[in-house]
């Protein structure tokens, strides 16, 4: 059995080679996969990695998809760094979207253009509150956050279905479970006409910088990391684990809620029974793939966005079934994770 040996320091060489290795593995397995399906491997790989980026609109769509993934992943990275196992970003995203939608529905035709700011604030509060439930139950009752955050994700999804079927249903919508479309003032302005990209991406970049500073420079960020890695040491130093639980969960909830708000007040423009295609779950992969580092999360979110869109394109361009895209995505992620190992470890055979 091969044996892993920790490198004294992460290998700089492997740092550069790892992505190449991952790409190489993906190309090898992808080639086999596409050949087995009777498709040209070149065309298959191209549709995942090149076609989505061929047009400016393509770039804007990748950017649009990155925003929710990145925001949720940043929040999750904070949680995981402090050893808080929140896997309910999906629920926090959805409830953030619900709260933002609720605010947006109150807008009225004469609302000032800046109204969308309140909508976004609503989303943040919604996500915060939902994560706050998890934090409260963890803090007060010691209830495991994995379970609570996951269960609350299901509850959040049902709450959304309830609202769009009942109180918030569009009265002119022939009873379909959709809210009315939001007034213009409630919508996040488009960044450039002709694309669906909104100022949300700028906001995401600002958030990215803020989270970065928070983690790298702030005292609270440092305390979080210490409390997460060495709870005992933290206690001696006077840092509280409770603080870590509350702070990381609330921050994650706020970010996921913001992402939900940007989605409903951005490309969606109304509340629908399904506002997330699973961003909160995908963001868990993004957070780890990005090694819980804000910069790494950007890269990982980009890769995730790319293979999602590539998956759609492989269907319309090559006639591949959607199932294959799942196989391919899983393979790519496993290859990336594998390659990552060699940065921190050396393999010894014996």
């Amino acid at each position: 059995m091969p044996r892993l040996e920790a490198r004294p320091a992460p290998s700089p060489l492997m740092g550069y080679l790892a992505p190449v290795l991952a790409l190489g593995l993906t190309v090898v397995f992808g080639t086999l996969l596409f050949l087995a399906l009777g498709k040209s491997p070149v065309a298959g790989l191209r549709v995942f990695f090149v076609t989505p980026l061929e047009t400016l609109r393509g770039w804007s769509e990748v950017g649009l998809k990155m925003v929710p993934l990145l925001l949720c992943a940043l929040g999750l990275a904070i949680c995981y760094r402090s050893n808080v196992w929140n896997i309910g970003a999906e629920g926090q995203f959805v409830v953030g979207g619900i709260a933002a939608g609720g605010v947006a529905l109150l807008a009225g035709a004469d609302a000032p253009r800046a109204y969308f700011v309140i909508v976004l604030a609503g989303g943040i509060v919604g996500g915060l509150a939902w994560a706050g439930v998890t934090a409260f139950l963890r803090d007060r009752f010691n209830a495991n956050e994995i379970l609570v955050s996951l269960m609350l994700t299901y509850v959040g999804g049902l709450l959304l279905i309830y609202l769009v079927n009942g109180p918030w249903k569009d009265p002119k919508g022939f009873n379909f479970p959709y809210s009315k479309t939001f007034d213009a003032a409630a919508m996040v302005p488009r960044l450039f006409p002709g694309t669906r990209l909104t100022w949300g991406i700028v906001l995401a970049v600002v958030v990215l910088a803020a989270v970065w500073l928070f983690l790298a420079r702030s005292k609270a960020g440092f305390r979080l990391a210490v409390a997460g890695h060495a709870p005992l040491a933290a206690r001696f130093a006077g840092f509280s684990a409770r603080e870590g639980i509350w702070l990381s969960l609330l921050l994650c909830g706020a970010l996921a809620g913001l992402a939900g708000a940007l989605e409903v007040a951005g490309p969606l423009g109304q509340l629908t029974p399904q506002i997330s295609p699973g961003y909160g779950f995908a963001a868990i992969i993004v957070a780890w793939l990005g090694r819980l580092h804000p910069g790494g999360c950007v890269f990982a979110a980009f890769v995730m966005a790319l293979i999602y869109i590539g998956g759609e394109l492989s269907q319309s361009r090559l006639g591949l079934p959607a199932a294959i895209t799942g196989v391919f995505q899983g393979m790519l992620l496993l290859a990336l994770l594998t390659a990552d190992t060699f940065i921190h470890y050396r393999v010894r055979w014996r």
Binding site: L4, L333, T338, T341, Y345
Partner: peptide, 8 residues
Amino acid sequence: GLATNQYA
């Protein structure tokens, strides 16, 4: 075997 992150 390769000590990759278990969650991911």
